Computed example of a mutant assay.
Amino acid sequence: MPTITGAGVARIAATLVLAALGGLLAHGLGLPVAWLLGPVVAISLASVAGLDTRLPPVFRQVAFFILGVQAGSGVSPEAIGQLGLWPLSFAIQMVGVLAIVVVTYLYLRKFVGWSHETALFASLPGALAFVLAAASETRADMRSIIIVQTVRLLLLIGALTPALGWLEGGADVDAVARSHGGGLDDYAILLGISGALAWLGARLGVPGGMMLGALIGSALLHGADLSAVSVPQPIAVPCLIVLGALIGGRLHGIERSALVTLLPISLIAFLIGLAMSALAGAAAVLTLDLGPGKVALAYAPGALEALTVLAFQFAIDPAYVAAHHVVRFMGIAFVVPFLARRAKDAVES
């Protein structure tokens, strides 16, 4: 692990304080999921302004683990009864993902005039690490891909949060995260099982492995009605602030001139993705009798960790939401190497 200097500690502390102030302001304004949305906005602005807002990996690991445990506690025995609907929901979702890729690609290629490789990799919704790794082996414009993908994530959080507040009737989402009563032995079992599965998920390289493993462990206990404890608010809120800072920090290092130039293009690409997801979601709601808020989070094009947290905050079956994002991630990760080879062969020939 690299050594953090005194200046590095000050920079990290400044980032966290700024993120916390953003959360406090959003909370004071009564915004939904304020402790996530506020830090995202605050750190995004700081990153665009040129500040170094990056956080060490340990912050990501701890926050993802705690938030995974919290999200899993939102799974109820009643939610387990809907597992039979998931395969059909996965199928509808993947048709929507294909539509996002095709329509976004056509827009970027035919209307914007981007190269085949750049348009292709910029159109893939999520799995950013795989997409960038594969795109780097081609002649794709990496800067354009990073900006389109990052703006998609930021707009997704900004658009879905108030939309869910409306769909779910403006419920007090902060109340969802309050801990149930329980003894130290209950917390030890919850953290022990969740910790073991989080470690396994990270070791196996599963997408969002730390959070997903913790979520599965917590969901198994709560879904089987073997646990009634959750993460207390004084612990959950700082983790939400860290997650918001991590999301906003994705803009670090992006040139402001490039961001301004590509922002309209990114916005249209985002709207295309949102429209295709909405069509697929409407099909799922109408055919499978699923709640619109639940499907909106599950079918949203990207951000497994953030959307799983939103699912818990709005009390919307986080296991269902996380499962769909993993399926989307795995589908994209599976085809990306093939697409990269095709793109590279086309250029060489």
Results as ranks from 00 to 15, higher is better:
1 M>E: 14
5 T>Y: 11
5 T>M: 09
6 G>A: 06
7 A>Y: 02
16 L>F: 02
22 G>C: 06
24 L>Q: 15
25 L>V: 02
26 A>W: 15
27 H>T: 07
32 P>F: 09
34 A>H: 13
37 L>N: 04
37 L>D: 02
40 V>Q: 09
41 V>S: 00
44 S>L: 15
45 L>I: 13
46 A>D: 00
47 S>M: 00
48 V>M: 00
48 V>A: 03
51 L>A: 12
54 R>E: 05
60 R>Y: 08
60 R>D: 07
71 A>F: 07
73 S>I: 06
80 I>K: 12
81 G>T: 06
84 G>N: 03
85 L>S: 09
93 Q>F: 08
93 Q>P: 12
94 M>D: 14
95 V>Y: 01
102 V>C: 01
105 Y>E: 10
105 Y>M: 06
108 L>V: 01
110 K>F: 09
119 A>T: 07
122 A>N: 03
122 A>F: 11
122 A>I: 10
123 S>H: 08
124 L>W: 05
127 A>M: 05
128 L>M: 09
128 L>C: 13
129 A>N: 15
129 A>Q: 13
133 A>R: 05
136 S>C: 04
141 D>E: 13
144 S>H: 01
148 V>Q: 05
153 L>I: 15
153 L>P: 01
155 L>Q: 02
161 T>D: 13
163 A>C: 12
165 G>C: 04
169 G>Q: 10
170 G>S: 10
170 G>R: 03
170 G>P: 08
172 D>P: 00
173 V>Y: 13
174 D>L: 14
176 V>M: 10
176 V>F: 12
177 A>S: 14
182 G>M: 02
184 L>Q: 07
190 L>Q: 01
192 G>F: 12
197 L>R: 01
200 L>P: 10
200 L>G: 13
212 L>T: 05
213 G>M: 02
214 A>R: 10
216 I>R: 06
220 L>T: 00
222 H>W: 14
226 L>I: 06
230 S>F: 04
233 Q>E: 09
239 C>T: 11
240 L>M: 07
242 V>G: 08
245 A>N: 04
247 I>R: 12
248 G>S: 06
252 H>C: 05
257 S>K: 10
257 S>F: 05
260 V>N: 08
260 V>P: 04
263 L>A: 15
264 P>E: 07
265 I>S: 15
265 I>W: 02
274 L>R: 06
275 A>S: 07
275 A>E: 03
282 A>T: 15
290 L>C: 10
291 G>H: 15
291 G>D: 13
292 P>L: 02
293 G>D: 10
297 L>R: 02
299 Y>P: 09
303 A>V: 13
305 E>Q: 04
308 T>H: 05
311 A>C: 14
311 A>K: 05
312 F>D: 07
313 Q>F: 10
314 F>A: 07
325 H>T: 15
325 H>G: 11
333 A>I: 07
334 F>E: 00
335 V>Q: 04
338 F>A: 14
339 L>R: 05
341 R>M: 09
344 K>R: 08
348 E>T: 15
